[in-house]
Design a protein around this nucleic acid. Structure first.
Length: 598
RNA sequence: GGGGCCGUAGCUCAAUUGGUUAGAGCAUCGGACUGUCGAUCCGAAGGUUGAGGGUUCGAGUCCCUUCGGCCUCGCCA
């Protein structure tokens, strides 16, 4: 076999005259009858081979047979391309290899789609033939970027004394949170392991064990419906530190993120990353993951709306709801049908029953007022107050939603993001980071009539609110923080509870009985009793970080072998039925018989 | 579980109000060609319109069911 001396991307003019050998896949061939050109591709690039019968008839004969995606090795001399024959599109475009010896290492069927075709190939076909798809330079670049980013993370933490410690994949189900993936135990019939939703308790136990600083790039599993940026199986950068407060965790980790952005994109992230409180985020952006690349903040006008003549507004406020909205700069260019059909349907997805609108107009005398839409329900003075509150200008459109606070905020948050994009209110190439802090410790779950952790049940309240746990749990703030970039949450963490009494108290408030707590978290509670240091940490979604770095909005683009929306791997066809004998060994019987030859 | 979009040749798409034998580009196969580089030129082959049912003289097109993909609401401590 011809052994390669160089890869397909590295030869330059300075290599002219060298005897070299390369190997790779045939990207394309141009057969001129006598002279044959072959573009050979590997992970590193593309190089042009020339087969000239005057150099070797054997090699030329072989090249006549070669087809796209065949695996080919070739040896020959590097020579400069003639004047005007360079190809500026290739890094190796100044040279070519005059082949004296060639060897077909393997043949290939005609690929199911053209690998470097500019046209966009159906993702289903790409996933079924992932080995072909992953030959595309763009996919190779994304996986390369992923590798490099992970290495930057590892180096960063290593330099600061963090140890990467593995935690179990087969562990214990802790109901609450997302649905678990279960693995049946053979040795203990009827019992199950759960795949980790995150190594949360293990990393806390590592702190109790005195490991001091831990990180792990680790697979996590959550059996929930996927989204464009969510996959049941995903990768976390998991971090935990002892003897720290919120500021130290945020400080180290924003430096880590800044290092990644610098080394991968050569982008400088301004440190420290600004912070916004949860309540401010909800008030101004309607969400705890605000896209701060553009302004267009939400404004509450419940007070003005309450004494309008618009029944929907007044009754909403009377019932304890709110009237809130945003002012779309230059929104006057939106047509009435854009607003009343498209945007109204859009907010309806989030439960909003309507979208009130008014255009901001200026009279000849220079007076600003509201035109059309909901304007007729407000007198001149109140119109003025609305315009003033939004800081609205002529040509803007004010859009309002009236409903219960959570519906108003959710729908307006989504509308804000959509309009920001549609009206091009920001530069798509910038990255704006923000820490969201001061989350409430609990949220009230109306369905189950109990408190629920906003973050998770191991999050510590802020010191000043400790005594409120008993009296007004709804107003207790937590030591939690989320890192948000361009409206995407890429990480979240907290300082943890390290005191067993506080932990018990929190379980109590979450309506987890002593027995339940013992059954689910007993191992952890016992660990807490043996000298747990104050500790805190964070976890980042590596896949989402890579998406941002790679500039794609699809998580499947940054995972080598992803699953579809129905949790299927189109390459392997997993999940699939198993042999009866396997089930028997596991003492399992399925309720639904496996589908027979559909 | 709900809502939306989509499914036509290997790939990307087209096909008038329901109307003849479902077309094009690329890929494939054969031929020609010594400087191409998404080679070019000539020729050929390629289809159960995702599947099933219905309406109709006639269905890629309309209706129902179903399968699959994507987006999304719910869900994601």
């Amino acid at each position: 076999m011809i052994k390669r001396t160089h890869n397909c991307g590295e030869l330059r003019l300075s290599d002219v005259g060298k005897d070299v050998a390369v190997a790779g896949w045939v990207r394309s061939y141009r057969d001129h009858g006598n002279l044959i050109f072959v573009d050979l591709r590997d992970r590193y690039g593309i190089v042009q081979l020339v087969f000239d019968p005057e150099i070797s008839t054997a090699a030329h004969d072989l090249a006549e047979k070669v087809r796209c995606e065949w695996v080919l090795a070739s040896a020959g001399k590097v020579r400069p391309r003639g004047e005007g024959l360079e190809n500026p599109k290739l890094a190796t475009g100044q040279i070519e290899i005059a082949v004296s010896e060639a060897e077909i290492l393997n043949v290939a069927k005609t690929p199911p789609f053209e690998i470097e075709a500019a046209q966009k190939v159906n993702e289903e076909i790409r996933l079924c033939n992932r080995y072909i798809d992953l030959r595309r330079p763009v996919m190779q670049a994304r996986l390369g970027l992923r590798h490099k980013a992970a290495k930057v993370v590892r180096d960063f933490f290593d330099e600061r004394g963090f140890w990467e410690i593995e935690t179990p994949m087969l562990s214990k189900s802790t109901p609450e949170g997302a649905r678990d993936y279960l693995v049946p135990s053979r040795l203990q019939a009827g019992s199950f392991y759960a795949l980790p939703q995150s190594p949360q308790l293990f990393k806390q136990i590592l702190m109790i064990s005195g490991m001091d600083r831990y990180f792990q790039i680790v697979r996590c599993f959550r059996d929930e419906d996927p989204r464009a940026d969510r996959q049941a199986e995903f990768t976390q950068i998991d971090v935990e530190m002892s003897f720290v407060d919120c500021d130290e965790v945020m400080d180290v980790n924003e430096r880590m993120i800044a290092r990644v952005w610098k080394e991968i994109l050569d982008v400088d992230v301004a440190l420290p990353v600004p912070r916004i409180s949860y309540s401010q985020a909800i008030a101004q952006y309607g969400t705890d993951r605000p896209d701060v690349r553009f302004d267009m903040k939400l404004k509450d006008i419940s007070d003005i709306a309450a004494d309008s003549s618009f029944g929907v507004f007044t009754s909403t406020v009377e019932k304890g709801g709110i009237v809130k909205g945003l002012c779309a700069p230059g929104g006057a260019k939106l047509s009435r049908s854009d607003i009343e059909k498209t945007l109204t349907a859009f907010v309806a997805d989030y439960g909003a029953k309507g979208l009130a609108w008014a255009k901001v107009v200026k009279s000849d005398a220079g007076e600003m007022s509201l035109g059309s839409g909901f304007a007729k329900f407000f007198d001149t003075a109140r119109q003025g107050r609305i315009i003033e509150r939004f800081g609205a200008a002529q040509g803007d459109v004010i859009l309002l939603v009236a409903d219960k606070a959570d519906i108003v905020n959710k729908s307006l948050a989504a509308l804000r993001v959509r309009l920001g994009r549609d009206l091009k209110l920001y530069d798509e190439n910038r990255f704006d980071f923000v820490w969201v802090v001061e989350f409430p410790l609990f949220e009230w779950d109306e369905d189950q009539k109990r408190y629920d952790s906003l973050h998770h049940p191991f999050t510590s309240p802020i010191q000043a609110d400790m005594n409120k746990l008993q009296t007004e749990p709804a107003n207790v703030k937590s030591q939690a923080y989320d890192l948000v970039v361009n409206g995407s949450e890429i990480g979240g963490g907290s300082v943890r509870i390290h005191n067993i009494e506080t932990q018990r108290k929190v379980f109590e408030l979450l309506n987890i009985s002593k027995d339940q707590a013992e059954e689910r978290f007993g191992f952890f509670l016992r660990a807490l009793e043996y000298g747990a240091p104050p500790h805190g940490g964070i976890a980042f979604g590596l896949d989402r970080i890579i998406m941002l770095l790679a500039g794609t909005d699809n998580i499947r683009d940054v995972i080598a072998f992803p699953k579809t929306q129905r949790g299927q791997c189109l390459l392997t066809d997993a999940p699939a039925p198993v042999d009866k004998s396997q089930l028997e060994e596991l003492n399992l019987r399925t309720k639904i018989p496996p589908a027979a030859g559909e």
